[in-house]
Every structure is written in structure tokens, then in C-alpha cells.
Design a protein around this nucleic acid. Structure first.
Lengths: 302, 302
DNA sequence: CAACTGTTTTTAATTATTTATATACATAGT
DNA sequence: ACTATGTATATAAATAATTAAAAACAGTTG
């Protein structure tokens, strides 16, 4: 009952990390400074210090705080205890939606689902409210929720909207002055793509975050909160998509890297026509991949 | 404590309305049918019937339900009791944001605000979560909320995004076959605009809903849930905007109607260039009006 | 026997309560 | 004096409890 102490546990583990980097016998900084370093309030810092003292990892009296011995892994809170409910729920829920064969437009039973996900009905409800902005679940006026599902229609509408936004970005991008920071970012992205391509056999899983970075960078030139909001939806969908759709993963990513490189080159040429074609080509591939992962369940996972 | 009985009260008032249209002595239909008519469960219908019986408006035994006398206004639940908390909150909150001079990026104090709005902190929290999709408030990772506010930047980004979407719709619309339902809807809208223009002196306030209808119709051709979602945000913003910014209201609406008529004509000509110009012209005006209502508070309200 | 009502059970939404965390203020130490 | 700590208070986020509403089931009646 009552709020969880995830923040305390996370802060404690973070504190252990920084203590591990210090030699035994060193003095710790003041509560206020530690609080700022950990990004939490002094209340939490004091609770952490109390626990550290009780565990005889530090000595603490007044403003003298000395490290007695380096902490080890067993002192930490286990990771699964630290993970907040809302993060767990996103994984559980999306896994449930994307991997199992729930029919579209199913009415959701909150109390039943919350038991399955081992959380309170309220926690699930909060999650659904936040999540409803993505259009995969919807709240009924009469009360209750329906799962609209990650259907082929959803993938198509998502892709169409995405293409509209990204082409707008591209049009704006190619007209930007050469001293705009985006050009440097593109240079860096190009280097990272080439580096990844060289070790594609072992590092092909790293493509996912590179894909995210490229599209986020391109859309950043719009400097528009609605674009950013939509891009974050795209990031989430593709994050889980890459995570679970392992079929032809290496080949797919190799092709995508080439498309990205062509895309970057076209942008750097600052030729609107060329950039548009390259953008459309890559976005079409992405759309196809996404679409293939909806529909039949057997196209999901290897 | 525990959930409100708004649904019951609303259903009761609705039932009174339908009883008022019936002659005394007539038999009511079955619980199941009444439930379907009112859009509620049988549980509510039975509660409503019980109250009606207690008030001697109907007699009820077993399956015989007879109307004894026509109900009058005093039998109803007062309207303000019926209005649900979430609806009230939207009004209160937007009025607070748009009319008072709250500085952008202010940290919101949920418990304080909830007292001002006379609701529980939790109800306000629920509202904020739902409302955050519009980008006017934002949840901090560390906890708590900030009001980003209805600033000039917000108005600009909103308008830019809107223009991108609506131009996409227009491009798709002018290419549609003549038997597509949108053409009939545009004909009807044109008639309604002309009718409104003839009585503009008295009916100028009706423009707001007409504006909403036109843009919703145009964007409906995309048949995309993300477009619909964004259009509903636009509708909300303009709804409150029209409601509170009364300066030059009649003149403004007269101009807008002409722009709408030109816009509709251009669409009906099915000429992409003409339609694009008309769209841009009207959207630019809308952007200016919206922008003028941000910034200085004295531009708000007469 | 089909439609309707009576009764019970399940699910949803809201408030109250509790614990965690943040912040403000007063006091002590260097 | 400044800065750190000790203490008190305010605010946030979670659960638990409570009531409304829906749905399921069983029994009745025309």
C-alpha cells in the first residue's frame, strides 16, 4: 500500500556504483551535493546513507561520512525490484499485444489483466490512459477499454502519417544553411553507419538505435513539439518491432543500412528531388517490414 | 467516497424527457428496452424506475409500469449535479490557462489546484494525464507537472503542423472521384455558409461549429486515425478560442466565412493549385487570429 | 417457450488513506 | 559568514476500500 520506493532503491544502487569507483577511506561530499548528483531529494540521500551505515559500508556521524569498504554486487537491490511498474507494464502489454493473437476490437477486462500482469487495476488503468495516445487502445465513453490492436490498418495509417511528416522535414532540411548543427550530426551518423556495416556480422542488433537516431535527427529540424511527439511513438513501435521480429534480421538490417547511407548522401547533396526519392525508398521498405509483422502471427519472431 | 452516480442522474433526467412526451396512463416498455434506449444497464433503469415510483410519477408492479402524471422541471436533477467532474475540469482548467496570466513553464501544485477546482487530487491527476497529449502540460520524469502554457510558440507549432496535415488532405481531396461522399458534404457546407452569411448580424456565433465541420470534413478524406486525433485537438483549441476571444468577433467571422466559401469553391474546381492557395490563405488568417490571442493578456476577451 | 423480471456476481470508477519523496525552515558547525 | 545538517511540513504517488454500474444467471409469467 502507498507509493513504491523505486526512487530510493535506484538511488541506492547508483550510489553504490559511485562508491565502487572510490578508494576505501575517502570522505563523501555533502548531502546536498550527493542529492544533486543522484538527481533526488536530500530525504532520499539520507535514507541511502542510513542504509549504507547500517551495512557498515560507510561510517557517518554529523557531517563526517567515510567509506569503510568497497561495496560489491551482493549489496545492490536486485534489478527487477528496481524496475518501476509502468516500465514493466509497457513491456508486458506490448508483448501481449504484439505476440499473442488477441483479436482486434476486443474489450479489455482491467481487473483480469491486472492480475495477469501482477499489478493493481489502478496501475493498469494509469498505463492505459497514457498509452491511449498511441491509438492502440481506446477508452469507451460508456466506460471500459477496447484493444484496437496493432493491425495492418494501424501500420498503414502510421506509415502514411510518418511519410508526410518526414518528407516535410526533408524539404526543410535540404534548404538549411551549411552551419546548421544538423549537418554535423549527419556526418557523425554516416561514420557510425559505415562503422556498423564493417562489423555487421556481430553487431547487426545495434542497427535499431541507429535507425532511431537518424529519423529523430531528421525530424528535429522541424523543431515542432507535435512532430517530436509523433517521432517518439515511431521510436517506441520500432523499438519493440526490432526486438521481437527476428526473422531475416541481419539481412534486413544490412539492406536498411545501405538505404540509410543513400538517404544521408542524398540529404548532403542538398538536392530536394534526390533527397525525396531516397526518403520515400527507405520509408517504403520500413512500411513493408512493419506491415509484414502484423497480419499473420507466424510472421512474428523466428 | 467511491464512484459518482452521474450516469444514474443523467439517465433519470433523460427518462423524464421521454415521459414528458407520453400521455398519462400509458404503459412503459420493458426494462431491457428502456436500458437500450437510454444507453445504460438494466441496473440503472431499475434504480430510475424505483425513484419514479417513489415520486408517484409511475406505478410499478412486476412487469406493469404505468405513467401516472406528466413530470415537470422540478422533478429533474439539477444540471450542475449531473455534469461529470472530468468535463468541468476541462472547462475550469482551460479557462485558467487561457484567461489568467500564468507564466509558461510553471510547476503545477496538484493538491493546491485540486482544492481550487474543488475536486480530489486524483481527479485532477487523471485529467492531466489525458490532457498531456495536447502538449500544454507535461509530466516531469522526476514527478510532478509543468504548465508549458498556450504560448505564441505553441500556437505557431500547432498551426504549422495543422497546415502540413490539411494541405495533404486537400491534395488527396481534389483527386477524388465525383461520387465520393465528401463532395455532397461540401455542397451542404456551402449552403450552410451562405445561409449563415445572410443572417450574420444575429447568428455570427454559429460560425464556430461550421468552422469545425469544414475542417473535419476536409481532413476526413485522409481516413487516418492520427489525422483525426490531431483534428480533435484543433477542434478543442478553436472551440475555447472562439468562446473566449470575443474581440472583433462578428467582423472576424464574416471574413472567415468568405474565406471558407472561396476555399470550398476552389476545392470544387478540383484544381490543385487554386485549392492550395485558398487553403493557405484561410489557414494563415486562422494562425494570425490564434497568435494574437496568445502573448498579451489584454488581447483576450473584449 | 420466449420474453421479462428478480437476484447474484463481477467489473469499473472514485475517494480515502498511507507511505515515499520533496521542500522549507531552523539550527549547528567550521 | 557561509554551508551543512536536523527537523518539520507539504506534496506526490501508490494501494485499499467503497460504491456505482454492468453482466450473468435463475426463476416467472403471459
Amino acid at each position: 500500500m502507498a507509493r513504491t520506493n523505486d526512487r530510493y532503491k535506484t538511488a541506492f544502487n547508483q550510489m553504490l556504483d559511485s562508491l565502487a569507483a572510490m578508494p576505501a577511506g575517502s570522505e563523501l561530499s555533502s548531502e546536498t551535493i550527493l542529492a544533486r548528483q543522484l538527481g533526488v531529494s536530500r530525504t532520499i540521500v539520507r535514507a541511502v546513507l542510513e542504509r549504507l551505515q547500517k551495512m557498515r559500508i560507510i561510517s557517518w556521524r554529523g557531517r563526517r561520512k567515510k567509506l569503510l569498504k568497497s561495496p560489491d554486487a551482493s549489496d545492490r537491490f536486485p534489478d527487477d525490484e528496481v524496475e518501476s511498474v509502468s516500465v514493466r507494464l509497457e513491456e508486458y502489454f506490448l508483448e501481449w499485444v504484439l505476440r499473442t493473437d488477441v483479436a482486434p476490437d476486443t474489450r479489455l477486462n482491467v481487473s483480469l489483466l491486472s492480475r495477469q500482469f501482477s499489478c493493481t487495476p489502478h496501475a493498469l488503468h494509469e498505463f492505459l490512459v497514457r498509452f491511449s495516445r498511441f491509438g492502440i487502445v481506446e477508452r469507451l465513453k460508456t466506460g471500459g477499454w477496447v484493444l484496437r490492436g496493432f493491425t495492418a490498418e494501424y501500420a498503414i495509417e502510421l506509415s502514411e502519417f510518418r511519410e508526410m511528416i518526414e518528407l516535410t522535414s526533408v524539404r526543410k532540411l535540404v534548404a538549411l544553411a551549411t552551419d546548421h548543427p544538423v549537418w554535423a550530426q549527419l556526418d557523425e551518423l554516416k561514420r557510425d553507419h559505415i562503422a556498423l556495416l564493417e562489423h555487421i556480422e556481430v553487431r547487426y542488433r545495434d542497427f535499431s538505435s541507429l535507425d532511431d537516431r537518424l529519423h529523430t535527427t531528421i525530424n528535429s529540424v522541424q523543431d515542432n513539439r507535435f512532430t517530436r511527439e509523433f517521432q517518439s511513438l515511431i521510436s517506441m513501435i520500432f523499438h519493440y518491432h526490432y526486438q521481437w521480429n527476428k526473422r531475416w534480421e541481419r539481412q534486413r538490417n544490412t539492406v536498411a543500412i545501405s538505404e540509410h547511407l543513400a538517404y544521408i548522401d542524398a540529404l548532403q547533396s542538398r538536392n530536394w528531388q534526390a533527397a525525396q526519392s531516397a526518403a520515400l525508398a527507405h520509408l517504403a521498405t520500413a512500411r513493408q517490414t512493419l506491415l509484414a509483422s502484423t497480419g499473420a502471427a507466424d510472421t512474428l519472431v523466428s
